[in-house]
Design a protein around this nucleic acid. Structure first.
Lengths: 231, 231
DNA sequence: TAGACACAGATCGTATACAATCTAAAGGCA
DNA sequence: TGCCTTTAGATTGTATACGATCTGTGTCTA
C-alpha cells in the first residue's frame, strides 16, 4: 500500500479515493491479498476514516476488496471458479454490445478509441505493462459507452476490474503480444460499422484472453508466507 | 417510509436493514421518488446513523437509491432510457443462463422452484400483487443460482431490483395475468432439461414483460405535488 | 521444553458531536 | 402585491472518541 498517486491539493472525496485505488489495482501496483488498512489510507490521503470507509465499501461492492469483519479490507483473490464466471459473464455481455457499438460509432468515438490504442501500444513498448493493462480495460468499457448502454457499461467496468485481479493471479507469461492486435481488428470493424465482425471479434478476443490463463492451479497460491500457512 | 417489517429483537446489521428496504421496494410498499431519511430509518431500526448510511450506500450501489449530496437518499426513478437498458441487459444475461440452468437442474432445485411458483400463485390469488412481484423476481435470480453462476446471479438480482422500480413507474395495468404462465413453462423446460426451450422461453418472457410497459410517457411524472413543481 | 492462559497492542465497529449545506419561511423594499 | 434578501430550521457530511474484537507475545506451570 505504498507509492500511490499523489492526490490533488484539496482533500479528496470518497469517490476520488476509490478511483485511485481502483487504478492502482488495474495497474497491478496493488496485488490480490494485500491488506488495505483504514488508518494507512486515511493517512495517505489526509482524510478521516469515515471517508476511507466509504471508499472501501464502494470497492467491496465492486468485488475488488473483501472486507472481513474486525480484520479489515483485503484486495480480493478471485478463485478459479470466480475467474471462469467473470469471463462467462463477459462473453454474454460484450460481443452483443460490440455489435451495438459498431452500429452507432461516430467520428469522435473513433478518434478516442484510436488514442486509447495508441497509448496502449506506447505503454507496452515502454515496458509499462501495468499501464497497458489498465488502458486495455478502458477500451472494453469505452465500447459499452459507445453502444449507449450505461447499465451494461457499469457491469463491464466491474468485470474488467475483476479481470485485472484474475490476470494478476492466473496469467501465464509465455504469451505476451496479444492485446494490441485484437483491439486493432475491433477498431477496424467499428470503423466499417460491421456489426457481425465486431461481435465475432469480441467473442474471439475474450476466448483468447481466457485461454491465456492457467486455471488449473489451486487458488491458494499465497502472496505471502503468512497467507500460505493460515488455517 | 412507514410500516416496514418489524425487525428482529437484536439490533439489526447494515445488511439486514438494506435487505428489508430492498424487500419493501420489491413489494412496492416503497415507491420511486420517496425520500429515505437517515434519521427516520435510524429511528425505525433502532441503530445509529452510521449503520443506516452503510445500508443506504449499499442500496445506492445497486441502483435502488439515489443519494444527492446534502439532500439525502431517494428511491431511484429510472428514466425511460434506464428502463430499456435494464431489459436489454437482462436479455443478454438471462436466456443463456436459463439454458445453463436447464442442463444442471437437480431434484432439489425443482422442488424449490415449484414452491416459489406456488407461493407466487397464491399471492396473486390473494390480491397481494406486491408479494407476487417480489416472488417473481426471486424466481429469476434462482435460475442463475441453479446455473451455478454467482457473478451473473448478482447482476440479475440488481436488474430485477431495478425492474421493480421500472414496473412501478411504467406498468400498464390493462394486462394482468402473465407471470404465472411463463414461469410454469420455464419450469417445465428445466424439468425436461431442455436447454433450447429454456433459452427461448426466457427470451420470450422478457420481451413479454417489456411489451407490457408503457415507455412513451415522460419520466417526470411526479409522485408528489412538491416534486412536480420543483425547479 | 511444550502447552495453555492471560494480557497488551492494534485495528475495526458504532455512536455521537459539530460543521457545512440546503430548504423554506419571514421580512423588507420597490 | 410581487420579488428579492435574510434568517431559522432541518438534514446531511465529517471527524473523533470510545468500545469490541482480534492478533501476537510473554509468562506460568506441568
Amino acid at each position: 500500500m505504498k507509492d500511490l498517486d499523489l492526490q490533488s491539493s484539496t482533500t479528496p472525496s470518497a469517490d476520488e479515493i476509490s478511483a485511485q485505488l481502483t487504478e492502482a489495482v488495474h495497474e497491478h501496483r496493488v496485488l490480490p491479498g494485500m491488506k488495505v488498512s483504514e488508518d494507512e489510507v486515511s493517512e495517505i490521503f489526509g482524510v478521516g476514516r469515515t471517508v476511507v470507509r466509504q471508499a472501501l465499501q464502494t470497492l467491496a461492492h465492486e468485488g475488488l476488496l473483501r472486507i472481513e469483519r474486525n480484520r479489515g479490507a483485503f484486495v480480493a483473490k478471485p478463485s478459479v471458479k470466480d475467474a471462469r464466471e467473470v469471463f462467462e459473464a463477459r462473453a454474454l455481455l460484450e460481443p452483443r454490445t460490440a455489435r451495438a457499438a459498431a452500429e452507432r460509432t461516430t467520428e469522435t468515438d473513433m478518434a478516442l478509441l484510436e488514442g486509447h490504442i495508441e497509448q496502449e501500444h506506447a505503454a507496452l513498448a515502454a515496458g509499462e505493462t501495468g499501464r497497458a493493462l489498465k488502458l486495455s480495460g478502458l477500451f472494453h468499457a469505452e465500447i459499452a459507452r459507445i453502444a449507449n448502454q450505461a447499465t451494461i457499461e457499469a457491469f463491464i467496468k466491474q468485470l474488467v476490474s475483476r479481470s485485472s485481479l484474475v490476470i494478476a493471479l492466473y496469467w501465464q507469461r509465455r504469451s505476451a503480444i496479444c492485446e494490441s492486435h485484437a483491439h486493432h481488428a475491433l477498431l477496424d470493424a467499428l470503423r466499417r460499422q460491421d456489426g457481425d465482425a465486431a461481435e465475432d471479434l469480441m467473442k474471439g478476443h475474450l476466448l483468447d484472453l481466457l485461454s491465456q490463463l492457467d486455471l488449473r492451479q489451486l487458488p491458494d497460491q499465497a502472496p505471502s508466507l503468512r497467507e500460505a500457512l493460515k488455517r
